[in-house]
Design a protein around this nucleic acid. Sequence first.
DNA 1: AATGAATGAGCATTCATTCAT
DNA 2: CATGAATGAATGCTCATTCAT
Lengths: 209, 209, 209, 209
Amino acid sequence: MSTNNKTNRQKDMSFIEKARRAQIIECAIETIVEVGYAQASLGKIAKRANISKGVISYHFLNKEELLEQVVIEYYLACHSFVYPQIEVLTSPKDMLQKYIEAHLTFADKNRKHVFAVMEIVSNGRTSDGKLKFATDHDENIFQPIEDILRLGMREGAFWEFSAKSARVIALTIRQSIDGFSIELMRNPQINVKEYIQELVTIFDKATRK
Amino acid sequence: MSTNNKTNRQKDMSFIEKARRAQIIECAIETIVEVGYAQASLGKIAKRANISKGVISYHFLNKEELLEQVVIEYYLACHSFVYPQIEVLTSPKDMLQKYIEAHLTFADKNRKHVFAVMEIVSNGRTSDGKLKFATDHDENIFQPIEDILRLGMREGAFWEFSAKSARVIALTIRQSIDGFSIELMRNPQINVKEYIQELVTIFDKATRK
Amino acid sequence: MSTNNKTNRQKDMSFIEKARRAQIIECAIETIVEVGYAQASLGKIAKRANISKGVISYHFLNKEELLEQVVIEYYLACHSFVYPQIEVLTSPKDMLQKYIEAHLTFADKNRKHVFAVMEIVSNGRTSDGKLKFATDHDENIFQPIEDILRLGMREGAFWEFSAKSARVIALTIRQSIDGFSIELMRNPQINVKEYIQELVTIFDKATRK
Amino acid sequence: MSTNNKTNRQKDMSFIEKARRAQIIECAIETIVEVGYAQASLGKIAKRANISKGVISYHFLNKEELLEQVVIEYYLACHSFVYPQIEVLTSPKDMLQKYIEAHLTFADKNRKHVFAVMEIVSNGRTSDGKLKFATDHDENIFQPIEDILRLGMREGAFWEFSAKSARVIALTIRQSIDGFSIELMRNPQINVKEYIQELVTIFDKATRK
DNA sequence: AATGAATGAGCATTCATTCAT
DNA sequence: CATGAATGAATGCTCATTCAT
């Protein structure tokens, strides 16, 4: 199992190994934020970390693995932050509200990391040109919102939209969350609390009976 | 003034010149869609156009100008398509609905071009690392929606949201329009008409009294 | 047909293109002879040619193609030199003698090229580690000698060796020809005429009734 | 003297030291056979031995010494195997026959080692580009055959070839022995006994009165 | 108006070697 | 004894750009 694999692998890593990888990942994130995905070379990442390029190759199989690690770390951290807050809730309305609030809070607290992940996810392609993270995204990102929407519909908490409606609403919510991260980069002094409140209101109105 | 400059320049162009530029722009779009912004080199664009790399340099100052041209062409075409449809309307509600509908229709009819522009806008950076199209975007893209929202608020067509609310709503609408283009690439067989209807409904609910 | 392809390709090449390729191939040969296969980098080849590394990439798809071209050029030149001399003969004994003599003469006149080809053929591997030119060698190199041997056997010109004997004799002759090129590099002042005579004698004795 | 040096050095080695060196040498051989001289890096050798790269550097001065050791070990083992078999003979004819037979038998029983040595000997160069093992080869390899040939000539066992003939015959015999190893790699299911017989016959015919 | 040719910087990656622990 | 960590040079290759023709 891949999760298990991962755990074992990390267990097997020495403290120094983990620290170096963390440092490199951190510098990769900062480099991507600063110069953008296309210009973020291993050389620039190494320079930022004050290490030689070879060190990155020593700790990561290749550039791909490094960037994947940035993405994976985000998925895990984001999931760990968001889902405990949702699972304790019972009302779909509250769950949707918390979903938005938690994701925006996470994006706010991890601005660079989240922005870097979006750069990687939207630019990372396989050698045949296809977007690498497209399917993962689909399954792991949209599904949970749709689940909440469907639950709410069954319980009569939302207006009676169709399955297709649910999908579009889910997409729109996700886009507004990702869009928030972008807006945060362009406009760092945003009042986050207010933004959250606005977004919650918008989707409360959009879904309520 | 830049607009004037532009016009003069285009006037001065021969028919062949314009045709070549159009062909190159077309191929640039297709290349970006196919391999992504980071991998879209002048070499690949030239190969797709069956011309030598030098031709591109001959017709465009540099890569930057070519990509800018892709974006500018989009802005002009999109504006020409959307605004005549809005300007004939008087009700803010109708205007908002038409704004969404027209943009989605345009994105559907110009899938590749719109997707390419998004790639360029979200990746294009100046040599100091800053996003090149960030401010243009702000002024040309968000303002019109905010105008509609403000108008509707003054006329009592929408609930009484604040200026900040208006901004968030505008952002969310734009994000949902851009997100539609991305979704269209991932999932080309989407029922566009339905999608438009869903989105119109969402933002009608989100803004109505 | 590959030969035809080749011809067409070369026909399509401009004079300059052909000259550059020839120059690069020449420098590749000299570099390989001077520093050996493993140390013959594109950088060193470019430096010897007083051109930038990029020029090589411009004229050849990659290093592999360049080295293959060195080999192919040799095969064609060697074949053109050797076979006309053999085809006019009717006696298998004479043919074998001429085979040896012509190959050694060619190797003598094209010392560097032949040595370089041997370096490439004996070191060139595919990404899975297998020798790249092994099979070509088999078919194009050993077959002709075996043909002569078989013909001679049928005509009673040689002693009645078996098919397996023929193969070992063919191998041994080839090895002595390739070995001559290596010896020529180690010991450039060899008296080639004498060497040829000795080798002809050895294999005349080894095959005669 | 280097031999003495060597002996002292090996005497000083602990059991573990010797075992480690043997293991590393073994893995170096296998790596060279599998991927070729140019691609046989210390990293790959270490991976095959399940040790860290540093271990190799610890036990060997550098890559050069490791490869030299592979060659030296072969020289010693080959010599120990071949010469006792020859020294007991008195007839030059028998000695030549045994020389061929013993070398081919050794090459058969130590396929990988012998092939690796040939890769090293034909590729190993000093920093100034000259073949490292060229002279060693000359002295240790060709001399013994020439000795047998000269002896046989003095005794009237062979036809009366000149000194130069003797050298070419010696070269040809060595080339056929080395060539056998290469053929063995390309074609591992060769009938070795038969091959030996064929080669013995060839050079018996080539040298007899 | 177009092209082929060349450049030189930059890219990801591999490598032999060194060294502190 | 052995290792993990790091280095810095070198490798093959791609790229945007320039320029003579």
